[in-house]
Amino acid sequence: MRLLVFGRTGQVATELARVVPDAVFLGRDRADLMDPDACAAAVRDCDAVINAAAWTAVDKAESEEAAATVVNGAAPAAMARACAGLGVPFLHVSTDYVFDGTGDRPFRPDDPTGPLGAYGRSKLAGEIGVRAAGGNAAILRTSWVVSAHGANFVKTMLRLGRERESLNVVADQVGGPTPARAIAGALVGMARAMAAGQPGGTYHFSGAPDVSWADFAREIMAQAGLACVVNDIPTSAYPTPAKRPANSRMDCSALERDFGIVRPDWRAGLAEILVELGAKA
C-alpha cells in the first residue's frame, strides 16, 4: 500500500514510521500546516493519506486560537478535499476534546459535541471540514496519547517520580490512556481496509481500562519501580489556561464492529514504553 502521511516527528507519526517505514512522511519543511493550500498540493498519487500532524499545545491554543484553527481545522479540510478529488481515502486523527466532558458514560461517535476550549474547537473545525469534503474519509478520535517519544504524561511522571518523594495528580478526570503505537496500528489497518473499498466514518479509539490521571500515575510508578507516592487532588487544585474534560471515556465499539480493531490494554503498552525508555523495573 502506497501511504502518504502528514507529520514526521510527532508521537503517532513516529510510530507510523515503524509500522510502515516505506510510507512517504511529510514534515513541516514539505507541508506547513499553516499553509492549507500547500498541504492540499502535497497530496499525490497514493492509496491512502493519513493526517498525523496537528497543533497539540492545548493551553497555548487559548491565546493563539486563530493559528490553532488553521493547523487543526483548515489544513485537514484542504487535505480531505484534495483526497476527495483524487478518489483517495483520507484518515484524520481527532480528540476527545471535541466533547464537553460531562457525565460518566463513554461518549459515542454520534454524541453531540461541545468543546470546552480553543483546542477542542479547532479540532472540531477540522472534523467538520473533513466531512464536508465529500470523499471517503475516517475520523479517529483518541485520547491521552503516550509513547517513548516527545512530551507526554508518562515521561513527565518518570522525571518527577525520580526527583520527588510524592506528587499531587488530578483524580477527577477519567479517560483511556492510548499508546501511540496502537493508534498507528489502528490507522494502518483502517487505511488498508478503506483502500480496498470499505467506507470510513467517525470512530473512537482509546486504551482500556478507563482510569484517572492519578491512578495512571500510580501504575507508572509501580511499573518503573519508583517509590514516589501519588496523592489525589481535584482539578480545581491544578488550574490551567485551558479547561480539561472531566469525562474522556470513549465508546470504541463501532471501530471493533466495522474494522475488527479492539481497544488496547494501556498497561501492556505502558510496559513497552518503559522498556524502550530503559525505565522498566
Rank of each mutant, 00 (worst) to 15 (best):
R162L: 13
S248A: 10
P245Y: 01
S166E: 01
E163Y: 12
G185I: 01
R267G: 02
P179W: 11
A182P: 09
Q223D: 14
E163C: 03
D210C: 06
A222I: 11
L158W: 10
A191E: 08
W213V: 03
D210W: 15
E256G: 12
L226F: 02
V170H: 10
P234Y: 13
R218L: 05
S212P: 07
P245L: 00
L167F: 04
W213I: 06
A224T: 05
P199H: 07
P245C: 00
A195S: 15
L158C: 07
D251T: 06
A254P: 04
P177G: 00
G200M: 06
G176H: 01
L226P: 01
G225S: 00
H204R: 03
K243E: 11
A237N: 11
P209I: 05
A217D: 01
G175W: 02
V229P: 13
G207K: 05
R263W: 08
G225C: 00
R192G: 13
A254Q: 12
G269E: 10
V188T: 10
R263G: 01
R244K: 09
G207F: 04
Q173I: 02
L160F: 08
R249L: 09
N168E: 12
K155P: 08
A224H: 08
A208C: 06
V262G: 12
V188N: 05
V229H: 15
R192D: 12
R244W: 02
A195Y: 12
D172V: 04
A171V: 01
F205D: 05
A214S: 14
A214T: 03
L167N: 00
P199M: 07
A186I: 05
R249Q: 11
R257E: 13
Q223C: 13
I183T: 05
D210N: 13
P245D: 00
T235A: 15
R181F: 08
I261N: 08
M250I: 00
P179I: 09
I220N: 01
G225R: 02
M250R: 03
L167G: 01
C252F: 13
G185V: 02
L158G: 03
A254V: 09
W266H: 09
A186M: 07
D265I: 06
M250C: 01
D258Q: 10
P241C: 12
